[in-house]
């Protein structure tokens, strides 16, 4: 039996500078990434959900609505980009649930007592959820192509549209991080993380042209950051100039990331395992 010597000779070192933040973030992200292939249930749901969304929305809702001007058809070219945006946004909710889980298990106390860069705990979590989201999106894109979705613009535009979606979902996972660190349980993190995303995504241009909405709802929908990101990505996939919507969408994503990163890192530094 090997002795556990506890001489003052330490292995650990205190981090300094951005390099450690990156390294610790990657270490934390790998904690979450390595379980993805192991968790078959989660994997199955991560694949089924985007397929279900595409198929349900396209075949149930798609029939009766006429294509808004500038689009070949409603279902494939107008509705599907909206569903892309909604699905990646919903994917951000994993972040809050995951952090709430770490908090309830006492893991957060341990992590906070380590000489690591503490923001790395949340950065690692958001990054790993982004990777999961990218995988989910790839499946969804495949199904979308199968039901007739086509990229009408340049490949460059399509890549830009896709990156914008990911950036936007990433920004929202910082909101979810704050929620996950604020509520007391995994269940609460789940509900609190999802509930507001329904009005956010439905009162937007994701499914219907905001021009068709009641007068009182229209300004809300037009102002909605989710409308901006949907409009911008939809335009880019269809080879249409996104105009100011692209800059609005990027601006929202940057703003949300900065504000909620500051808030959730501050929250984390005062967090106590429950």
């Amino acid at each position: 039996m090997a002795a556990v010597d506890t001489l003052p000779e330490q292995h650990g070192s205190a981090p300094s500078g951005g390099m450690w933040v990156l390294r610790d973030s990657w270490t934390e992200a790998s904690r979450h990434l390595r379980i993805i292939p192991r968790n078959t249930e989660l994997l199955v749901f991560a694949i089924i959900q985007p397929i279900m969304f595409v198929v349900l929305f396209v075949y149930v809702f798609g029939g009766a609505i006429a294509a808004p001007p500038g689009f070949d058809n409603y279902k494939q070219q107008y509705l599907l980009p909206g569903i892309f945006a909604q699905t990646v946004l919903f994917g951000s909710a994993f972040t809050g649930v995951g952090l709430a889980e770490d908090l309830t298990k006492g893991l957060v106390d341990r992590l906070r007592s380590l000489p690591m860069a503490h923001p790395a705990v949340i950065i690692g979590r958001t990054l790993s959820d982004l990777v999961r989201n990218v995988l989910s999106f790839a499946v969804m894109l495949g199904v979308a192509f199968a039901v007739g979705f086509r990229i009408r613009g340049s490949i460059g535009d399509a890549v830009m549209a896709t990156l914008l979606l990911f950036f936007f979902a990433y920004a929202f996972s910082w909101i979810q991080a704050l929620i996950g660190l604020s509520v007391g349980s995994v269940e609460a993190a789940n509900s609190a993380g999802f509930i507001w995303m329904f009005p956010l995504t439905f009162v937007s241009s994701a499914f219907v042209d905001t021009a068709s909405m009641p007068r009182f709802l229209r300004p809300v929908a037009d102002f909605n950051p989710f409308t901006k990101v949907t409009n911008a990505t939809r335009a880019l996939y269809n080879g249409i100039d996104p105009g100011a919507d692209l800059w609005w969408a990027i601006g929202w994503a940057v703003g949300i990331t900065v504000v909620f990163a500051v808030l959730s890192i501050r929250k984390f530094n005062r967090a106590a395992s429950k």
Partner: peptide, 25 residues
């Protein structure tokens, strides 16, 4: 602490290595 601070999704060995890495070993 009072609550087992372990990631249940990982193996025991992975938990140990992970904490070691966060100590910058």
């Amino acid at each position: 602490g009072q609550y087992a601070a372990i990631d249940e999704r990982l193996t025991g060995r992975e938990n140990l290595e992970h904490i070691g890495r966060l100590f910058h070993m």
